[in-house]
C-alpha cells in the first residue's frame, strides 16, 4: 500500500503580491495602477473580500488579510462621498495590513485612492472583468497556490486518457513500464518524482517538477529525455490521478484480486483513488495489462462492470430450472470455419 510521509506534504504559507501579479497579469488582464513599492506584501489565504462595509465605517470583523476587491458597489459608494470623506473612508481601511486591492469592471481609481495606495504601499490593480468573474478566477488561482502538495515516487502516465500512477520499490521497473507505454502511443506526465496537488474536493492533479520534466532514468542506460526522443505526442504536463497501480514481485503469501467485484482504494490526502496491486511474473506483460486496467476503468466509468455482469449471468444460470448445454454455441450449422 501507499504510505505518505508528512515530509512529502507541503503547502505554501503565503505568496507575495509580486508573484501573484506576475503569474496572473495576463490571465486576469491585471493592470497595475500604483507603484511597485508594496510588492513584497504577502497573501496568506485563498478567500477574497469586498470591503464595502469597512469603507462605510464598520471595521469589526474586517477580513483585511485577504485580497480586497472593489466592485461597482465600492466604487459607487466612494464616488458619492466628497473628497474629505473619501480620504477618510480609504484611510480607515488602509490602517489595516491589506495585501492588495483589485478594481473590477474597468473602474478607474480615484486620484485619492491612487495617492493613498502609494503612500501606504498597498498595490492597486484594475481588471476589465466583472466582480463575479474575477472573484471566481482569483479564488481558483489562490486555491491552487495554497493547495496541499504531495510528492510521490513513481511513474505517471496517461493511458487512453486515464491518469495512471505506477508505484513500487525502486528498481522494480516502473520507468520501464512507462517507457513501454510511451512506445505504444501513450503519454508520459512525469517519471520518478510526481507532485500531486489537491484541486477542489475529490480531485488530485499530477505533474512533474520543473526540473525533472520528462526526463527518465533507465537502469543500465542512464538519463534519457522522453520529449526529445519521442516527440510532443509522447508527453503531457498534467493529468488527473485516476488509478494507482502498485507493482510488486509475486509473493505467494499475498492474495491478489481475482474477481474484481470489489474495487480497492488508496487514500491520498483524504481522497480515495482506485488501487490495483499488480504482481510481476516472468512472461507477464505489464504494459498490456496496464492498458486493460485503463480500459476496464473506462468501461466502469461509463457504467459497465465486467465482473458484475458475469456474476449476473451466473446467478441467472443457477436459478434456471432446466439447464441446457454448457457449450457456448448451440448448433454448429454447416459452418466449419
Amino acid at each position: 500500500m501507499i504510505k505518505i510521509d508528512q515530509k512529502a506534504v507541503s503547502r505554501k504559507e503565503f505568496i507575495t503580491v509580486e508573484f501573484f501579479y506576475m503569474s496572473t497579469r495576463n490571465l486576469f488582464q491585471l493592470e497595475l495602477y500604483s507603484d511597485t513599492s508594496g510588492f513584497n506584501r504577502k497573501i496568506f489565504e485563498q478567500n477574497l473580500h469586498r470591503p464595502g462595509l469597512a469603507l462605510a465605517g464598520f471595521v469589526d470583523l474586517f477580513s483585511f488579510s485577504r485580497v480586497q476587491v472593489f466592485g461597482n458597489t465600492e466604487t459607487q459608494y466612494l464616488s458619492q462621498l466628497n473628497k474629505e470623506q473619501r480620504i477618510k473612508a480609504i484611510e480607515r481601511i488602509f490602517q489595516f495590513n491589506i495585501p492588495c486591492i483589485i478594481l473590477t469592471d474597468n473602474n478607474k481609481p480615484f486620484p485619492e485612492l491612487l495617492e493613498l495606495s502609494n503612500k501606504y504601499k498597498i498595490p492597486l490593480f484594475g481588471t476589465p472583468f466583472s466582480t463575479t468573474k474575477l472573484v471566481y478566477f482569483v479564488s481558483d488561482f489562490l486555491d491552487d497556490q495554497f493547495a496541499e502538495r504531495i510528492s510521490i515516487h513513481g511513474s505517471f502516465v496517461d493511458v487512453y486518457g486515464t491518469g495512471m500512477l505506477f508505484i513500487g520499490k525502486s528498481g522494480i521497473g516502473k520507468s520501464e513500464v512507462a517507457l513501454d507505454l510511451v512506445e505504444r502511443g501513450h503519454r508520459l506526465v512525469a517519471d520518478d518524482l510526481i507532485i500531486l496537488t489537491k484541486k477542489g474536493e475529490g480531485i488530485l492533479m499530477g505533474s512533474g517538477t520543473n526540473m525533472g520534466r520528462h526526463f527518465m532514468e533507465i537502469r543500465g542506460l542512464g538519463i534519457i529525455d522522453v520529449e526529445r526522443m519521442f516527440g510532443i505526442r509522447a508527453i503531457r504536463y498534467q493529468k488527473r490521478l485516476e488509478i494507482v497501480v502498485e507493482l510488486e514481485i509475486w509473493d505467494d503469501n499475498t492474495e491478489y484480486t481475482r474477481t474484481g467485484l470489489d474495487q480497492e482504494h488508496v487514500t491520498i490526502s483524504g481522497i480515495d483513488i482506485p488501487y490495483v496491486k499488480l504482481p510481476i511474473l516472468p512472461g507477464k506483460n505489464v504494459t498490456v495489462i496496464s492498458e486493460v486496467i485503463s480500459l476496464n476503468y473506462l468501461l466502469k466509468h461509463y457504467g459497465y462492470k465486467a465482473a458484475e455482469s458475469f456474476q449476473e449471468r451466473l446467478n441467472k444460470k443457477i436459478s434456471e430450472k432446466n439447464k441446457d448445454d454448457m457449450r457456448g454455441v448451440e448448433y454448429f450449422e454447416h459452418d466449419f470455419e
Binding site: 507541503s10 510528492s151 520518478d192 517538477t209 538519463i223
Partner: peptide
Amino acid sequence: GLNINGKSIIG
C-alpha cells in the same frame, strides 16, 4: 516539502 527516493538519480 519534496520527499524523494534516494535510490533514484533523477530524484
